[in-house]
Design a protein around this nucleic acid. Sequence first.
DNA 1: AATGAATGAGTCTTCATTCAT
DNA 2: AATGAATGAAGACTCATTCAT
Lengths: 200, 200, 200, 200
Amino acid sequence: MSEPEISLRERILETSRKFLFSDGYSSLSMRKIAKEIGVSATSIYLYFENKDHLIHTLIEESVEELSTSIEQSVEGVEDTIKRFEAIIWSYIRFAQHNPEKYQIIYMVHSDRMARYPKEKFRKARRGYALLESVIMDGIKEGLMELDKPMIAAYTIWAQLHGVVSVVFNQRLDSRIDRDEFIEESVEQIMQGFLIRITTT
Amino acid sequence: MSEPEISLRERILETSRKFLFSDGYSSLSMRKIAKEIGVSATSIYLYFENKDHLIHTLIEESVEELSTSIEQSVEGVEDTIKRFEAIIWSYIRFAQHNPEKYQIIYMVHSDRMARYPKEKFRKARRGYALLESVIMDGIKEGLMELDKPMIAAYTIWAQLHGVVSVVFNQRLDSRIDRDEFIEESVEQIMQGFLIRITTT
Amino acid sequence: MSEPEISLRERILETSRKFLFSDGYSSLSMRKIAKEIGVSATSIYLYFENKDHLIHTLIEESVEELSTSIEQSVEGVEDTIKRFEAIIWSYIRFAQHNPEKYQIIYMVHSDRMARYPKEKFRKARRGYALLESVIMDGIKEGLMELDKPMIAAYTIWAQLHGVVSVVFNQRLDSRIDRDEFIEESVEQIMQGFLIRITTT
Amino acid sequence: MSEPEISLRERILETSRKFLFSDGYSSLSMRKIAKEIGVSATSIYLYFENKDHLIHTLIEESVEELSTSIEQSVEGVEDTIKRFEAIIWSYIRFAQHNPEKYQIIYMVHSDRMARYPKEKFRKARRGYALLESVIMDGIKEGLMELDKPMIAAYTIWAQLHGVVSVVFNQRLDSRIDRDEFIEESVEQIMQGFLIRITTT
DNA sequence: AATGAATGAGTCTTCATTCAT
DNA sequence: AATGAATGAAGACTCATTCAT
C-alpha cells in the first residue's frame, strides 16, 4: 500500500489519549485500548513495558509538545511585554487545540506520578522557566517591580490552568461562550499582573 | 448510651472522603471502605444504593458546605467591595481547611458526573450566584463597569480554582511557601478585577 | 439435607491436595481448583487470602498430621528401641496412607517456603525432635554410642525420605513390589543405625 | 575465528539449567532464557522443538553425565567391595559438584516425565545397573547373602537420594555441617548394607 | 440493621508458540 | 541462522453487586 501507515505504537498512544480524555484515567484499560485498535492486548506489551510506561510516555510527549510550543511562540520576539503575552497565549492555544494532550499533563494522580522519573519532570518545567526568565527580564528593564519572580510565574500559570480546566471539565455555564470566556479571563490575568507595572 | 454516636452512614462518608483524598478516585473501593470501618461491604448498600450514589452524596455534601460557608461570609457585610473580598477569601479558606471536601467537588470525572442529577447541579452554583449578584450590585452602584457579570464571576472562580488546585496537586515548586503563594495569587486575582473599577 | 456437608473450605483444600499430587506444584491454579469444585474462582478468596496462604495452610495441616501421627505412635511405649522403631514406621506409614499430604510437605520450592512463617516451621520439626530425644535416651541408657544425636536423627530422616520419595516419584523399576521395597529399605536403614549399638 | 565458540544451543541449555536450579521449574520461561542470553525467544525454537524437548534434553544430558561419572569411577577397580564404595561416592560427588544437573534429574514432575521417551529412560538406569551388577558379583563371590540384588540396589540409591535432596532443599538444621552430615550418612548407608556381609 | 456467601466481569500481566521475513 | 510482530490462553487477583438469612 502506498498509504503512509501509522505504526501500532502510534495508534496505541493515540487511542490511549482518546480514552484518557473521554473516560478519565480510572477507566483506562489495556484491554480496551487493544480492542479499540483491533489488536490483542498482548501486543501493547511489545511497545510498552507496562501500563505505567505507557502513561509516562503519554505525559512525556504532551509535556514536550507544550514546552516546544511555548518556546516557538517567543522566537524572534524581542519586546519583553510581547514575549510575556506570547507565552500566555501559546499556553492557552495549546490547550485549546490539543485538549487531550493538555488534560493528560494534569490528569494523572500524583500517586502514579511518584513513579514518574524525576529527570523528565525537570523537562516539564521548560515552559514555566521561560516565563520566569521573561519576568526577570521585565524587572531588569524596569518594567516590573516584583521581588518574587518565581512566585509570580507560578501564580500566572495557576490562573491559566484554572481557566483552561474549568472549560474542559464542562463546569462552565452553558450560556457562556467558551472562546469569549477564555479571552476575558486571559485579559484579566494579564491585567492583574501588568497593573503592577503600569501603575507604578 | 447518651453519647452522640456517629452514625454508620456518616462514618462511610468520612472514610470515603479520606480514601478519595489520599488514594484518588481509581482506588476507592466499597470493600476497602467497609474494611476500614470494620463493617461488612454489604452494609454500605443499606445507606447508599450503589457506588455512584455514594459519590454523588459526597459531592453534594461538599458543595453544600462550600456554598453555606460562602453565604455565611457575607452575612452582615454591607459594603459591596467588602462582600466581594469576603466571598473570595471564604472560597480559599474552605479549600485550605477542608482539602478533601474541596477536592471531591472537582475530582470526579465529568463522565461520571453525567449521571449526577441536574437539579443538584443547580444547588452547586449557589456560591457562584452570590458572587455574580455582588458583581451586579457593584455595577448598579457604579463601582464597576462590566457588561458581562456572569463571565466575570466565572473568570474569578476559575482563577481561584487554578490556584487552589496547583497547590493541592503538589505541582508547586518546593521552594515556594504555600501560604505566601496563595496570598500573592489571590491579591493578583482581585487586582486583575478591581482595576476595572478603580481606574475608571 | 441430613448429609454431613463438607465445607467449601475443606473442599478447596482437598482439591488443591489432589492437583498438587497429580499435576505438581507448577500447574496448580486457583481457576482450576475452582472449576473442579464447581465454584467461582473468586470464592476461594473468601477462605484464603491468596495462593500462598492456601499452600501454607496445606503444608501446615500436613505437617501437623504427620507430627501428631508420630507422637501417637510412641504413646505408651516404654522401651527405647521400640520407640525408635515406632517412630520410623509411623513416618513410613503416614507417607503410604497419605501420599498427597506427605508429598506436599516436601514439594514446594524453597523459594516459596521462604515466605512461610518461621514459627510454623518449628512446629514442623516436632516429629524430628522426638526422634532426636529417643536417640538421646538410647545414649543415656548405654544402648547407643553416638556423639552427634542431631546428625543421626537427620540422617535417618533423610534416608526415610529418600525411600518414600523414590516410590512416589514412580522412579522405581516396575518389576519391584512397592511394599517389599519399602520393607527392605526400612530394615536396612534401621540396621545401619542399630549396628552401632549391637556391635558395640 | 579459531576460538572454540560456545554454540547457542549449549548456551540455551546452560542458562536453562541455571534458572531451573535457582528459580525452580515453575518459573522457567522461554522468554527469560532468551533474554538472559541476549537472543530472541524465537531462536530457541531453532534448536528445540518446544519447551518439553528442551527440558528432556536437559534431563538426558544430566543423566548421561551422572552415568558416565559412575562408570568411570569403577574403571580399573577390581575388588568388589571397593567397586561398591566407588559407585556410592561417585554418586554423592556428582551431586555435590553438579548440583544443578543433579537436581534436574529429579526435579521435573512425573506428569511431564510421562511424555519423556521410554528408551531414554533405560539409559538413565545405566548407573543403577552397574550397582546391581556389583552387588551380584558380591553374591557370586560369597561376600553377600542377598536374594534380591535389584531391590538392594534401589534401596541404596533411594537412601543416597534422600540424603542429597535433604541437603539441597535446605531442610537441614543450620547447626549441622553439610559435609559432615553427608559423610555420616553415607557411612551409615554403607554399613546398613555391609552388615549383611560382614556379620554373616 | 447487618451480614456471610457467592459471583461474573474485569484488572494487569506472562506464557509458549507461530509465521512471515 | 535468526528475528520482530503477533496472539490466544492462562495466570492471580479485585471489584461492585446480589441474595438469602
